[in-house]
């Protein structure tokens, strides 16, 4: 029983971390119509930035400053924001799919850097022994996981609340206006490019935050945590959950990760070990089918965007 409970706590932590990324993507895609194909790249930047900032100094590696957890969090967000700003500056003024291609490129490049720049990232070995916040206070792994779950609930709650606030603010309304009719928004004097860039950077900052939260939870980081499939899973979460709705993004995170984990367990039980590669392929194909089917048959997702009518509409 205790085994199941610990697994559920672990599962919930992962869902919340992925949920932060889904919220970031929802801001970019759901509210602004920006296509980010390199989610995993911004996530990796956040994760490595956090690891490098908080880990105790080691002679063989650059960085590792042994700074407090919160500095690592802020630094991770800043690093992802900077990367997003550079990519966004080059691509946001161009047609939408160029942003997709460029962000896809940054994810590929980041993965190469994490693999090859041994002096900074530890290369394929990764960086072990990353301090986890307050982990010394907890005797058992379950105790720490429970504490971290609470922390994550607080962080996700804060992110959700802040996003809902800014999306209801004039800034959020401009984003939607640009998404719906760019020409009209520009005619009203709004710089579409500036608002898009802001939304892109803010969304990517959340992905960096998720990366930092992930390494704070696992205490280890390696290039193999950041495979392209993750980008795809986050999309599936937003599309299936319902883009343009933050509750939908969080629900999507739960549903997709639930299906992913459950299908993994099922395949491991049913498929003989000799066919493990095929089993893994089935798991990925399942997610691909879910996403395509959702686009074709239920483009709104499970809970789609709620139409908002101005309270001045009747005047």
């Amino acid at each position: 029983m205790i085994g199941v409970f610990s697994y559920l706590v672990f599962f919930a932590c992962i869902v919340l971390i992925l949920g932060v990324m889904a919220l970031g993507l929802n801001l970019q895609w759901g509210y602004t119509g920006l296509f980010n194909a390199g989610i995993v790249g911004f996530y990796a930047i956040g994760a490595y930035a956090h690891a490098i900032l908080v880990t105790a100094p080691r002679p063989d590696l650059i960085g590792n400053f042994g700074l407090p957890w919160i500095v690592g969090i802020v630094g991770a967000m800043a690093a992802s924001a900077l990367a997003a700003w550079i990519v966004g500056l080059a691509t946001i003024r161009l047609r939408g799919d160029y942003l997709a291609i460029a962000t896809f490129g940054i994810a590929t490049t980041i993965q190469l850097v994490t693999l090859n720049w041994d002096g900074l990232t530890g290369g394929a070995q990764g960086l072990p022994a990353i301090p986890r916040p307050l982990s010394a206070w907890f005797g058992s792994p379950l105790g720490f996981n429970l504490f971290y779950l609470g922390l994550l609930i607080a962080v996700v709650g804060l992110v959700y609340w802040a996003l809902e606030r800014i999306l209801r603010s004039p800034w959020g309304r401009v984003l939607k206006a640009i998404r719906e009719d760019e020409t009209a928004a520009i005619a009203l004097g709004k710089s579409a490019r500036r608002f898009r860039l802001e939304a892109f950077v803010l969304g990517s900052t959340l992905m960096g935050l998720a990366g930092a939260l992930y390494v704070g939870f696992i205490g280890f980081v390696s290039p193999f945590d950041f495979l392209p499939i993750l980008t795809f899973q986050i999309w599936a979460m937003v599309i299936v959950g319902g883009s343009g709705n933050n509750k939908g993004a969080l629900l999507g995170a739960l549903v997709i990760w639930g299906i992913w984990a459950a299908s993994g367990v099922l395949i491991a039980k049913l498929v003989p070990p000799a066919y493990a590669a095929q089993g893994g392929a089935v798991q990925v194909i399942l997610i691909g089918l879910l996403l395509v089917a959702s686009l074709l048959f239920r483009p709104r997702g499970l809970i789609g965007e709620v139409p908002v009518v101005s309270r001045h509409a009747d005047d």
Partner: peptide, 28 residues
């Protein structure tokens, strides 16, 4: 997707989905 008048970027999403399926069918 073209017929339903979906957002042009939906096609890019779908392309990624199709790519994932095609690649993993090869693995299978």
């Amino acid at each position: 997707l073209r017929r339903t008048g979906a957002h042009p970027m939906s096609l890019v999403f779908a392309a990624f989905g199709a790519a994932l399926i095609m690649r993993h069918v090869v693995v299978m």
